[in-house]
């Protein structure tokens, strides 16, 4: 097990290198010239040259890439090009809101969808099952953008059930006041696909031979469901949750934009807009690392759920 983890961690190095290469090429090619933002309304060649020198843009591409390597190795991405604040402090301020928002959406959605999915799978083929599937499918067909615009307009503005937007400093205040509506909308968007996916996982497990064997042995249905089906079906469920965890960071862009929540998604858009390469680099590298770590964790969790799984 330990050797396995070591091997997987070592395998991350070429991937990170690839991510760096991709990012470097993409943004040196298309990222835009930040000196034109910093120089302002009126500028001259000297000012531009000075700015470029300060940002290190006058160095060779190779030297710039070496700096990038050093930044990744030390996980210190220096200061933002747009507002000259340390990248680490910018991201630190953004992580909290992002994780709070998407974490809650995910928590509520996962709990609801797994419990509903197991119930629906239990009565698969019934009218209830078909109705739930139909409702979910229809709900999924509406764009997230529509839910957000309409939800904010009617639920918050017209009906006044929620504040229109906002974000406070205290967790409790956010939880009680500002989070409910964005979380509700986020859950509406993600519940239906989750429910459908988990239902299919459960149904697939229930079609397996061992379920029939268990039934033949005279085990009660709830027991089969909980003991056998759930455990096996948890593997794809865990994978899907694990794989989506890193995206918690940037996933709720639309919600952040409409509800003025200071999350990571808006930071990405802002950084790209202002050609703020240090911030872009930091976010991408952190997410890449998180993605790989969660992939590894998912594999380890498999093993814990089902000892028969071979780690290779």
């Amino acid at each position: 097990m330990f050797a396995y983890i070591i091997r997987r961690v070592l395998q991350m190095i070429p991937t990170i290198f690839g991510v760096m290469l991709l990012l470097f090429i993409l943004f040196n090619w298309v990222g835009g010239d930040p000196s034109y933002i910093l120089a302002g309304k009126s500028m001259n060649a000297t000012t531009l040259a000075n700015i470029r020198a300060q940002l290190g843009l006058d160095k060779s591409q190779f030297a710039q890439f070496l700096i990038f390597v050093k930044q990744v190795a030390t996980l210190n991405f220096g200061i933002s090009w747009s507002n000259q604040q340390p990248v680490s402090s910018i991201l630190a301020a953004r992580v909290g809101p992002s994780v709070t928002l998407t974490g809650f959406i995910m928590l509520v959605s996962t709990v609801l969808s797994i419990s509903m999915a197991s119930l629906v799978a239990y009565v698969r083929g019934s009218l209830t099952d078909r109705m739930v599937t139909l409702i979910c499918t229809t709900a999924m067909s509406v764009s997230a953008l529509v839910y957000i615009i309409a939800g904010q307009f009617w639920l918050a503005h017209k009906l006044g059930w929620f504040p229109v937007l906002g974000w406070g400093d205290s967790f409790a205040k956010n939880l009680v006041t500002y989070l409910p509506l964005p979380v509700l909308l986020g859950v509406i968007v993600s519940l239906a696909p989750d429910l459908r996916f988990y239902r299919s996982c459960f149904v697939e497990e229930m079609n397996h031979d061992y379920v029939r064997t268990a039934r033949a042995k005279g085990l009660s249905e709830p027991k089969i469901m909980l003991k056998h089906v759930m455990r096996n079906a948890l593997i794809p469920v865990v994978t899907s949750i694990m794989m989506s965890l890193p995206y918690l960071l940037v996933g709720a862009l639309l919600l952040e934009t409409f509800f003025a929540i200071p999350g990571m998604g808006r930071e990405v858009i802002m950084a790209v807009d202002k050609s703020d390469f240090p911030v872009i680099k930091a976010i991408t590298i952190y997410i890449a690392i998180l993605t790989m770590i969660f992939n590894l964790l998912a594999d380890i969790v498999y093993k814990l759920i089902d000892p028969r799984v071979q780690l290779k």
Binding site: A156, H157, V164, T257
Partner: peptide, 13 residues
């Protein structure tokens, strides 16, 4: 607040 809809609704509220 970058979007116009939320800005306007926030003022009304």
């Amino acid at each position: 607040i970058e979007e116009e809809q939320p800005t306007w609704l926030a003022f009304l509220e």
